[in-house]
Write a protein that binds this DNA or RNA. Sequence first.
DNA 1: GGAGTTTACGAATGTCGTAACTATC
DNA 2: GATAGTTACGACATTCGTAAACTCC
Lengths: 85, 85
Amino acid sequence: MSLQQIRYFVAVAEEENVGRAAERLRIAQPALSRQIRNLEAEFGTELFERTSRGMRLSSSGAVFLPHARAILSSVESATAALYKR
Amino acid sequence: MSLQQIRYFVAVAEEENVGRAAERLRIAQPALSRQIRNLEAEFGTELFERTSRGMRLSSSGAVFLPHARAILSSVESATAALYKR
DNA sequence: GGAGTTTACGAATGTCGTAACTATC
DNA sequence: GATAGTTACGACATTCGTAAACTCC
């Protein structure tokens, strides 16, 4: 699990679509798809349900999302504390 | 900034010595030294004062340490939440 | 057949360990 | 000269983008 993967996960969870999320993150679609797959493989559970329309959070994904946001938030407050000097 | 770098930073802050921290992390000394340097370069500030005995937190490092621990703690609670299902 | 996701593959980037260097006591 | 940190360099692993393939309407 890397911070980048967490950011990727949140973007996909919000867009419910890998293509749009990739555009927002300014990376290519396959790179994003792979990182999500890698994250799921590491956790041993699928974070999304793949539908014909895109991706929707699975129950595991729904559990993880608030934690993911908390991690990113603590990272932001860490950098803010450092740059505020 | 990566989670690994944050773990490395905390280890060095606790050991006040790159060699011991590297041993604890089971990586080689230079790898650890470089990652700390990379982190400092990214932040644009030194996190440690280098003494003849080892490393001591700088004022920036002292600011960052509790944030670093908070990040790692939120990561742990995220993984715990996922594995508890 | 179109929208969306994934796999294949080569290129670029990052991280590591060993060995050599620097500095301080 | 011993202890501690850093730099150099080549090897290994990860991540990326382009192109092609798969899948479900």
